[in-house]
Each structure stands twice: as C-alpha cells, then as structure tokens.
C-alpha cells in the first residue's frame, strides 16, 4: 500500500506540531521517520491511523483520501494496518495468547482451534514459544514488544507501523527487534513505517528515511543520502551533538 501525505497541518492550541508535511511512503518498503523528541513523529503516525484529524492536508492511501472518510468507511481501510505501540499496548487483563487471538476473534469467523494455530504461528514468527498462558506483566520489555508485533501481524496487514520499537531496550534486544522488522517486511512484503531515535538501527532497516524538524520534512532520501548530506541540522542529529542549529526545547 502506498501512502501519500500532502500538506498535512496540525496545531494544538498555539503549538504548531505539523506545519505542512509532504511525504510519500512507498509500497513494500520500510520508511523510517526520525527527528527530535516532540517534533511531531507520533502525531504524524496518529493521523495515518485515524486517531487524530488534521487541521488541513490529505493522507491518501492507495488513491483514497482517508482524512474525509466516515468512521465506518475508515474502519475498512484500518483493517489493513497493524500497529506496534511504543508501550506495546498489550491488554493487561488478557494472556499473551488472548492478546494475539483478539483481532482474529473480532474480525474473522475462524474456529477457536484455527485461531489458536494462527496465534502459535505468529508467536513463532517473532521467536516466542510456550508463552501463550503468561500475562503481559510477567514478560520483559523485549518480549512485550515481540508479542505486540505478533498481535500486529495477526490479521496479515499490508502496512505495519512501529512507534519507537527499540526505545528502552538493551542494544542486543534492539538489534533482535530490528532483525524482526526486516524479516517481517521481507517475508510478508508489507509497507513498514518506523518511528525511531536509534541511528544505527535506522541505517540498518530503512529503505527510505525522512527527518522531521519544526513540523516539516527537512530531508527525505535513502540511507546513503543521509550519510552524505551536508545539511547541518541532519548532520547534528546523526552525529549526536548537542551543539548546532538543533536546539533542545526548554
């Protein structure tokens, strides 16, 4: 699925968060969105999955502008999306198995046995076995992310969205999650959108990278474009320097 974001604007009170974003998410590729904390990455994602409505601008998914759709029409498109939230967002009153089974039970008429088979298959894809009966509170951060990913791919979505998938994880687990994102993208052929602060991970998994700054896209290009850019804002961000044009907001 191809997603075109055109002139997207969003303000909260006087705070302009998105100031005319133009961005194309290519079909079947991984696009990583980077930028400082609070630069509007999560807000952008929330627009794509319909949790927020823009002040102006369009989000066109496979030729359909989703910003003007009715709730019932939008839910049809939303079924093609799988989202891995920053906090994993597992339902803590349900077991791991029930969490992964949940979208299947809600949206398919499959028998409980078939649902269980798919749950095991999806958990195996993310490298987990025999955890179906555990509760989210019994899992480590990395395991939660993997269960969250298993739930996100339960309905075989066409678009996968990852909101800071490696934040708060150790480097080894971060790399494991990065590999999972790459493998899932490769095997399922999905369009992936990843929000990240992790520079090394970004260069590893991205086909395309977009950097947001002050509500606008400052650079969109391949990892090589980013490595070779002379843009001082992008350079400062990639080189992890506090000094430069990028300022930490007080």
């Amino acid at each position: 699925m191809r997603i075109d974001i055109k002139g997207l604007r969003k303000s909260f009170g006087n705070n302009v968060v998105l100031d005319g974003i133009d961005l194309t998410i290519e079909d079947g590729k991984t696009t990583v969105i980077v930028g400082q904390t609070g630069c509007g990455k999560s807000v952008l994602i929330k627009h794509i999955i319909g949790l927020l409505k823009p002040d102006s601008g369009q989000i066109v998914v496979n030729g359909v502008d989703i910003t003007g759709l009715k709730h019932s029409e939008f839910t049809g498109i939303l079924k093609n999306f799988g989202v891995l939230f920053q906090s994993s967002a597992l339902f803590d009153s349900m077991t791991v198995g029930e969490n992964v089974a949940f979208p299947l039970q809600e949206h398919t008429g499959l028998s409980p046995a078939k649902v269980m088979d798919i749950v095991k298959e999806k958990l195996a894809i993310v490298g987990l076995k025999g955890v179906e009966r555990l509760y989210p509170s019994e899992l480590s951060g990395g395991m939660k992310k993997r269960v969250g990913l298993a739930r996100a791919i339960a309905l075989d979505p066409k678009v996968l969205i990852f909101d800071e998938p490696t934040t708060g994880l150790d480097p080894v687990m971060s790399d494991t999650i990065d590999n999972l994102i790459m493998n899932t993208q490769k095997h399922l052929g999905v369009t992936s959108i990843v929000i990240s602060h992790d520079i090394a991970g970004t260069f590893k998994i991205a086909h395309w990278i977009a950097m947001l700054y002050k509500g606008k896209v400052v650079l969109y290009g391949s990892p090589d474009d980013f490595r070779n850019t002379k843009d001082p804002i992008v350079r400062q961000f990639l080189e992890r320097r506090a000094e430069g044009p990028l300022q930490v907001e007080a």
């Binding site: 929330k46 949790l51 839910t75 989202v83 939230f85 906090s87 967002a89 597992l90 803590d92 949206h107």
Partner: peptide, 18 residues
Amino acid sequence: GTMRVTEQIDALSTMSIN
C-alpha cells in the same frame, strides 16, 4: 485510565474496534 495512558485504548481503535 490505565488503559488510556498505556495506549491500550488507541490499540483498540487501530484494530477497528470502537
């Protein structure tokens, strides 16, 4: 409230569940 701050309510929405 806990479901809201841990994004579980957003997760429901993205699964096309009101």
